[in-house]
Computed example of a mutant assay.
Amino acid sequence: MTGAVVAGLAVVALVLLWQLRAIGRSRHPVRRGVRALVVVAVLFVLVFANAYHALSTVDAGAFSEPLDRLDAAYFAVTVFATVGFGDIAPVTGAARLAVTVQMCGGVVLVGGVARLVVRAVAERRRRISGQDG
Protein backbone atom coordinates (compact mmCIF):
# COMPACT_ATOMS: atom_id res chain seq x y z
CA MET A 1 0.00 0.00 0.00
CA THR A 2 2.83 2.43 0.81
CA GLY A 3 4.16 2.13 -2.73
CA ALA A 4 0.72 2.87 -4.15
CA VAL A 5 0.39 6.02 -2.01
CA VAL A 6 3.86 7.21 -3.01
CA ALA A 7 3.09 6.52 -6.68
CA GLY A 8 -0.28 8.27 -6.33
CA LEU A 9 1.32 11.32 -4.73
CA ALA A 10 3.91 11.39 -7.53
CA VAL A 11 1.03 11.47 -10.03
CA VAL A 12 -0.55 14.32 -8.04
CA ALA A 13 2.75 16.24 -8.24
CA LEU A 14 3.04 15.64 -11.99
CA VAL A 15 -0.55 16.75 -12.57
CA LEU A 16 0.16 19.87 -10.52
CA LEU A 17 3.20 20.70 -12.67
CA TRP A 18 1.17 20.11 -15.83
CA GLN A 19 -1.60 22.37 -14.50
CA LEU A 20 0.88 25.14 -13.60
CA ARG A 21 2.30 25.02 -17.14
CA ALA A 22 -1.23 25.15 -18.55
CA ILE A 23 -2.00 28.23 -16.45
CA GLY A 24 1.09 29.88 -17.91
CA ARG A 25 -0.31 29.44 -21.43
CA SER A 26 -3.99 30.02 -20.76
CA ARG A 27 -6.06 32.92 -22.07
CA HIS A 28 -8.20 32.54 -18.96
CA PRO A 29 -5.72 31.93 -16.15
CA VAL A 30 -8.18 32.44 -13.30
CA ARG A 31 -10.52 29.74 -14.63
CA ARG A 32 -7.56 27.50 -15.33
CA GLY A 33 -6.24 28.11 -11.80
CA VAL A 34 -9.54 27.16 -10.21
CA ARG A 35 -9.64 24.05 -12.38
CA ALA A 36 -6.09 23.20 -11.34
CA LEU A 37 -6.94 23.44 -7.64
CA VAL A 38 -10.02 21.27 -8.05
CA VAL A 39 -8.25 18.62 -10.13
CA VAL A 40 -5.28 18.37 -7.78
CA ALA A 41 -7.45 18.29 -4.64
CA VAL A 42 -9.78 15.61 -6.04
CA LEU A 43 -6.85 13.50 -7.20
CA PHE A 44 -5.19 13.85 -3.78
CA VAL A 45 -8.36 12.71 -1.99
CA LEU A 46 -8.81 9.79 -4.40
CA VAL A 47 -5.26 8.58 -3.73
CA PHE A 48 -6.05 8.33 -0.03
CA ALA A 49 -9.53 6.90 -0.55
CA ASN A 50 -7.94 4.12 -2.58
CA ALA A 51 -5.32 3.59 0.13
CA TYR A 52 -7.94 3.41 2.89
CA HIS A 53 -9.99 0.93 0.90
CA ALA A 54 -6.93 -1.23 0.23
CA LEU A 55 -5.88 -1.06 3.87
CA SER A 56 -9.35 -2.03 5.05
CA THR A 57 -9.45 -4.90 2.55
CA VAL A 58 -6.13 -6.28 3.82
CA ASP A 59 -7.00 -5.70 7.50
CA ALA A 60 -10.72 -5.35 8.26
CA GLY A 61 -9.80 -4.05 11.73
CA ALA A 62 -7.69 -1.15 10.43
CA PHE A 63 -10.60 1.23 10.90
CA SER A 64 -13.47 1.27 13.36
CA GLU A 65 -15.52 -0.47 10.65
CA PRO A 66 -14.62 -2.16 7.35
CA LEU A 67 -14.55 0.34 4.49
CA ASP A 68 -16.02 -0.23 1.05
CA ARG A 69 -15.06 2.20 -1.72
CA LEU A 70 -17.77 4.70 -0.84
CA ASP A 71 -16.91 4.62 2.87
CA ALA A 72 -13.23 5.08 2.04
CA ALA A 73 -13.99 8.08 -0.20
CA TYR A 74 -16.25 9.57 2.47
CA PHE A 75 -13.56 9.11 5.12
CA ALA A 76 -10.86 10.64 2.88
CA VAL A 77 -13.06 13.68 2.24
CA THR A 78 -13.82 14.16 5.94
CA VAL A 79 -10.10 13.99 6.75
CA PHE A 80 -9.24 16.44 3.95
CA ALA A 81 -11.99 18.83 5.04
CA THR A 82 -10.88 18.45 8.68
CA VAL A 83 -14.46 17.69 9.66
CA GLY A 84 -13.72 14.57 11.69
CA PHE A 85 -17.24 13.36 12.45
CA GLY A 86 -15.80 10.43 14.38
CA ASP A 87 -18.06 7.83 12.81
CA ILE A 88 -15.03 6.20 11.16
CA ALA A 89 -11.66 6.24 12.87
CA PRO A 90 -8.26 4.68 12.20
CA VAL A 91 -7.49 1.94 14.71
CA THR A 92 -4.19 0.33 13.71
CA GLY A 93 -0.82 2.03 13.49
CA ALA A 94 -0.77 1.69 9.69
CA ALA A 95 -4.19 3.33 9.37
CA ARG A 96 -3.20 6.13 11.73
CA LEU A 97 0.00 6.69 9.77
CA ALA A 98 -1.91 6.90 6.48
CA VAL A 99 -4.38 9.39 7.97
CA THR A 100 -1.53 11.46 9.42
CA VAL A 101 0.17 11.59 6.02
CA GLN A 102 -3.10 12.71 4.44
CA MET A 103 -3.61 15.42 7.08
CA CYS A 104 -0.08 16.80 6.64
CA GLY A 105 -0.34 16.54 2.86
CA GLY A 106 -3.69 18.33 2.96
CA VAL A 107 -2.14 21.24 4.83
CA VAL A 108 0.62 21.44 2.21
CA LEU A 109 -1.90 21.15 -0.59
CA VAL A 110 -4.23 23.83 0.71
CA GLY A 111 -1.45 26.26 1.63
CA GLY A 112 1.45 25.57 -0.67
CA VAL A 113 -0.30 24.45 -3.82
CA ALA A 114 -2.89 27.21 -3.58
CA ARG A 115 -0.05 29.71 -3.29
CA LEU A 116 1.71 28.27 -6.34
CA VAL A 117 -1.49 28.41 -8.39
CA VAL A 118 -2.28 31.98 -7.30
CA ARG A 119 1.25 33.06 -8.25
CA ALA A 120 1.00 31.35 -11.64
CA VAL A 121 -2.36 33.02 -12.30
CA ALA A 122 -1.02 36.45 -11.27
CA GLU A 123 2.05 36.05 -13.47
CA ARG A 124 -0.01 34.99 -16.46
CA ARG A 125 -2.47 37.86 -15.98
CA ARG A 126 0.46 40.27 -15.78
CA ARG A 127 1.91 38.92 -19.04
CA ILE A 128 -1.49 39.01 -20.78
CA SER A 129 -1.99 42.65 -19.81
CA GLY A 130 1.37 43.50 -21.35
CA GLN A 131 2.91 44.94 -18.22
CA ASP A 132 6.14 42.99 -18.68
CA GLY A 133 7.37 45.01 -21.61
Rank of each mutant, 00 (worst) to 15 (best):
T2L: 15
T2E: 14
A7F: 07
G8T: 13
L9G: 10
A13N: 13
A13I: 09
A13L: 10
A22M: 06
R27G: 11
H28A: 13
R32M: 09
R32V: 09
G33A: 05
G33Q: 05
A36C: 06
A41P: 02
F48Y: 08
A49S: 10
A49N: 03
L55H: 06
T57L: 05
T57Q: 11
A60Q: 13
G61L: 05
A62W: 00
F63G: 01
S64Q: 08
E65S: 11
E65A: 14
E65M: 11
L67M: 06
R69K: 12
A73Q: 07
Y74E: 03
Y74I: 05
Y74R: 15
A81P: 03
T82C: 03
V83F: 10
F85E: 09
A89I: 12
P90K: 13
P90H: 05
V91Q: 13
A95Y: 01
R96V: 09
L97K: 07
V99P: 02
V101E: 00
Q102R: 12
G105M: 03
G105T: 09
G106Q: 02
G106E: 01
V107K: 08
L109G: 02
V110Y: 06
V113D: 00
V117M: 04
V117S: 07
V121I: 11
A122F: 00
A122Y: 02
R125E: 05
G130L: 01
G130Q: 10
Q131W: 10
